Simulated scan of single mutants.
Amino acid sequence: MNIAIIGTRGIPNYYGGFEQFAAYLSAAMVASGHQVTVYCAHHHPWQQSTWKGVQLVHCYDPRVLGTAGQFIYDLQCIRHARRCHYDVILQLGYTSSSVWGWLLPRRKSVVTTNMDGLEWKRSKYPALVQRFLRVAERLAVRTSDHLVADSPGIQNYLRNKYDKEAVFIPYGASVFDQPDVRVPEKYGLVPFQYHLLIARMEPENNIETILDGAGERPFLVIGDTHNKFGRRMKAKYAHQPHIRFLEGIYDQQVLNNLRYFSRLYFHGHSVGGTNPSLLEAMASQALIVAHNNIFNRAVLGENGFYFRNARDVETLIKTVSRTEEQHHIDACVARIQEQYTHARIVQQYLQHFESILAARRGVKLLSFSR
């Protein structure tokens, strides 16, 4: 198959979850004998035309324009894809691309869209933007041939809201079992004596709620703070030296080690589906405290702890002992091995692509026979 992936800033990952997902999915599909192209922003740090056998197309992304620049970037990617002959175009998300959905080359390619989370519920957006995102969601459903939901919650939402079926395929992770104590020590940390939070600096990730209950033990916050909310968080907790903001870290080995050696790992995401960072925390053998919502519960189950407010966070920090909760960690690792391995997810996507191409060929043959 000849497959294209659009909707990310590019690979290898220097940004977030979709980029991390696109990296492992594309490389694995190339290793399976398929031709894969990933669209990247022109300013992406990796400027070569290939990465691990994946073809890279760099398109103009005027990031100086902020959000408006994302719309221009998505348009450039779709315009390029129209000139190509891909069998399948996998679109990751729809926030700034669905307005151009009518330009997707659906006569030449089958377009399947991973609908991500409920973008219009993100509290960082003002009311006008939230209304636009509702429209964008509807446009994405209308201009896609097929939909992918990364959680049962999103799958049910799409069925109930739009009467349209989506195939459920989550993200994947690899079990981390080679810890290196030198990694936390490099950051001046005592293993299992610090708490950890990894997230984009956005209100719906409950960063402020978590840090308001952070207690006195060293607390690491990993995520790029160069936005309005991130700067506000740094300023608010500047008088608490035990809360350390380390900015973005994209070395997977470093992240895995910091998760592994944490006392408690906090996952505050509240509006997404199956979040890759939660799977990675489970695979890294962290003891997890997650925001209490249907998306996190669908992944973590009873294999961790949950919070709703800062008081819950404070109480869990005082009462939960990692040494007494090894059964939760073991259960998380088993869950990753059974349901969320990279190999399993890649195979599910390939089966999805093969089935939708077979369905299209069947429709064409039926039309020809008539």
Rank of each mutant, 00 (worst) to 15 (best):
D145C: 08
H267W: 06
P276R: 00
Q20V: 14
R107C: 05
G172L: 05
N156D: 14
M1Y: 06
P152K: 03
R370C: 10
L197Y: 01
A331E: 08
S367L: 08
Q253G: 14
N13Y: 04
Q253C: 04
Q285L: 00
L196E: 12
G101Q: 08
Q348E: 12
P12M: 11
I207C: 14
E314R: 15
G66K: 08
G117I: 02
A23P: 01
I329K: 08
T67G: 03
I288P: 07
Y349Q: 08
A136Q: 15
C40F: 02
Q285S: 13
K318W: 05
E280N: 09
Y60C: 06
V320Q: 04
Y24W: 11
P241I: 12
H352P: 14
Y250L: 01
S355P: 01
R159E: 15
A286P: 05
N256T: 03
V363W: 00
M201W: 04
A334H: 15
W102M: 05
K186H: 14
G93L: 01
Y349A: 03
I169K: 10
Q91C: 07
R259V: 09
Y60E: 10
Q348C: 09
R82E: 13
G362T: 10
R217C: 11
I222W: 03
D145V: 11
T143R: 01
G117S: 04
N292G: 01
C40T: 07
A343H: 11
L90G: 06
V135H: 10
K52V: 04
G273H: 09
Q285H: 03
I78M: 05
Y265I: 07
V363L: 06
E137D: 15
A283G: 09
I72R: 09
S284L: 01
G272C: 04
R159Y: 10
Y237L: 02
A127Q: 13
H242N: 12
K124V: 14
G172P: 03
E19W: 03
L104G: 07
L258T: 09
Y15R: 10
Y162H: 14
G230P: 05
M233P: 10
K108Q: 15
R231P: 00
E338K: 14
V346L: 12
Y60T: 12
V111R: 02
I154E: 06
F305D: 13
T50N: 09
Y94N: 01
E314W: 06
Q35S: 15
V313L: 05
R182W: 00
K364M: 08
H58D: 11
K164H: 15
M201A: 12
I5H: 07
A173V: 07
E202L: 11
H352I: 08
H146W: 07
F307M: 11
H226A: 05
V99Q: 01
H327S: 13
V167F: 08
L90T: 07
H242V: 06
E354F: 05
T323A: 02
E314T: 03
V167R: 15
I89P: 14
Y171V: 15
H85Q: 14
F353R: 13
E247S: 15
F176D: 09
Q35K: 11
Q55C: 12
E247R: 11
A28C: 01
Q178Y: 03
S174P: 05
